[in-house]
Amino acid sequence: MRLRHPDGQVVHLAYGTNVHPAEDLPGILTQLDVYAARVRSHLDTAVLGLGLWLAAPVAAALAAEPVLRRRLRRELDVRGLEVVTLNGFPYEAFHAPVVKKAVYLPDWADPRRLRYTMDLARVLVDLLPDDAARGSISTLPLGWRDPWDSPQVGAVNRALDQLAYGLSFLDRPIRVAFEPEPGCVIENTLQATVHLSRVDPRYLGVCVDLAHLACAWEDPVTAVQRLARAGLPVVKVQVSAALSVDDPGAPALAGYVEPRFMHQTRSRGCAASFDDLDEALASGADGPWRVHYHVPLHASPEPPLEATTGVLRAGLAVLLGGPVAGCDHLEVETYTWGVLPPSQRPTGPQQLAAGMAAELAYARDTLHDLGLKTLEPR
């Protein structure tokens, strides 16, 4: 969906397709009909934005073959779908039975990460709508924090220089956004200003994931101001909500322990930090806790659990509620639908599409409250 900010900028709102498991072109095209077309119908919108996830093998194939890129663009166009942003965080196998720390590999010290990201950039050049101002790619915050040594730092700095250099030669403006996440080398915006202090801000910046921001117990206003002072642009925003609980002994919390994804858990002010929810539950640490578990934006978890939608709304307000838009690419990224507790889990494609549409409607309505207007005709 497209919205107009009061300053005149077009703001793109999309849903992240990394919720779906397909990792080849036929599977991705099937997703467009099974899910995206249904979401567009639910929202009754002329054009639906996708934050497309392309696993490394299909990204490489598309980057190598212009005819495949043209085919994908046609398939998007005929369905009323558009892509201005790609989710380049997971490399591949994001829906394997166990993902956990593997999602942070290869990291930015590994040449495969640079190749993958440049493949995505080349693909995005040909997927961008003709009237789009620019494209964006979100990526991991360099890597998992341990191990992280001087040789890796040197390799990362060289890779980021090569990335900016490669982006400068593309036919359309494409920017790459590093997404702070708990447990990683860049966990919060303060660490972003340190580790990204030497990047070229014309091409590289930050992806603010509002669930991650909440888990780091960061104040949205302070975080955005910190990035601005450092000259780091907010290239993209992940419109997401984390799980929150005042009393970690609440029985409902144990229902969110699952084997696929990492659910880093932080107590208030990050006084206690755990790499996964089961570790936190075994620790007996005092609450309140925030858990890196992306929960649906429009539906509250089972009480006494809550979602950090207050942080989400505050983040959108500081970025888009002022006289100038602080970001123009937004992606609703609830990739955890398939591992939610059974009572909240969709039972089929129709329910999943309806849930994703409800999330997008929630995000759209929140932006309307901030003064943005939907551009797309009914």
Rank of each mutant, 00 (worst) to 15 (best):
Leu3Ile: 08
Arg4Ala: 14
Val10Leu: 06
Val10Gln: 00
Leu13Gly: 03
Ala14Met: 04
Tyr15Val: 02
Thr17Gly: 06
Thr17His: 06
Val19His: 04
Glu23Thr: 10
Asp24Pro: 01
Pro26Glu: 12
Leu29Gln: 11
Gln31Val: 01
Leu32Pro: 00
Asp33Gln: 12
Val47Phe: 01
Leu52Asp: 00
Pro57Ala: 13
Val58Thr: 12
Val58Ala: 05
Leu62Tyr: 03
Leu62Phe: 04
Ala63Glu: 04
Glu65His: 11
Leu68Asp: 03
Arg73Trp: 01
Arg74Gln: 12
Val83Thr: 06
Gly88Ile: 10
Pro90Ile: 09
Phe94Lys: 00
Ala96Trp: 04
Lys100Val: 00
Val103Cys: 09
Tyr104Phe: 15
Pro106Arg: 07
Tyr116Asn: 05
Thr117Ile: 13
Asp119Val: 08
Arg122Glu: 14
Val125Lys: 09
Leu128Arg: 10
Asp130Met: 06
Asp131Ala: 14
Asp131Thr: 13
Ser136Gly: 15
Pro141Leu: 11
Asp146Ile: 11
Ser150Pro: 00
Gly154Asn: 05
Asp161Glu: 13
Leu163Thr: 05
Gly166Phe: 04
Phe169Arg: 14
Pro173Glu: 09
Ala177Lys: 06
Phe178Glu: 03
Glu179Trp: 07
Pro180Ala: 08
Glu181Gln: 15
Val185Gly: 01
Ile186Asp: 02
Glu187His: 09
Asn188Met: 05
Leu190Glu: 14
Ala192Gly: 07
Val194Asn: 02
Gly205Ala: 11
Asp209Asn: 15
Ala211Asp: 03
Ala211Lys: 06
Leu213Gln: 14
Ala214Tyr: 06
Glu218Asn: 08
Asp219Ile: 09
Pro220Trp: 03
Val221His: 11
Val224Met: 08
Gln225Phe: 00
Arg226Val: 04
Pro233Asn: 13
Pro233Lys: 14
Val235Pro: 02
Val237Asp: 05
Val239Pro: 00
Val239Gly: 01
Val239Tyr: 01
Ala241Cys: 11
Leu243Arg: 08
Asp246Glu: 15
Pro248Ile: 04
Pro248Glu: 05
Ala250Asp: 12
Leu253Val: 06
Tyr256Glu: 05
Glu258Pro: 00
Gln264Gly: 12
Gln264Trp: 08
Arg268Phe: 07
Arg268Ser: 10
Arg268Trp: 10
Gly269Leu: 10
Ala272Thr: 12
Ser273Leu: 13
Asp278Trp: 05
Glu279Ile: 02
Pro288Cys: 11
Trp289Ser: 04
Arg290Leu: 12
His292Lys: 12
Pro296Glu: 10
His298Asn: 06
Ser300Gln: 15
Glu302Trp: 00
Ala307Glu: 01
Thr309Met: 00
Gly315Leu: 03
Leu316Ser: 04
Gly321Ile: 05
Gly322Glu: 03
Pro323Arg: 13
Gly326Ser: 06
His329Asp: 12
Leu330Tyr: 05
Tyr335His: 14
Thr336Asn: 12
Trp337Glu: 04
Val339Asn: 03
Leu340Val: 09
Gly348Thr: 07
Gln350Leu: 13
Gln351Arg: 14
Asp365Glu: 15
Thr366Asp: 09
Leu367Asn: 03
Asp369Asn: 09
Leu370Met: 07
Gly371Arg: 07
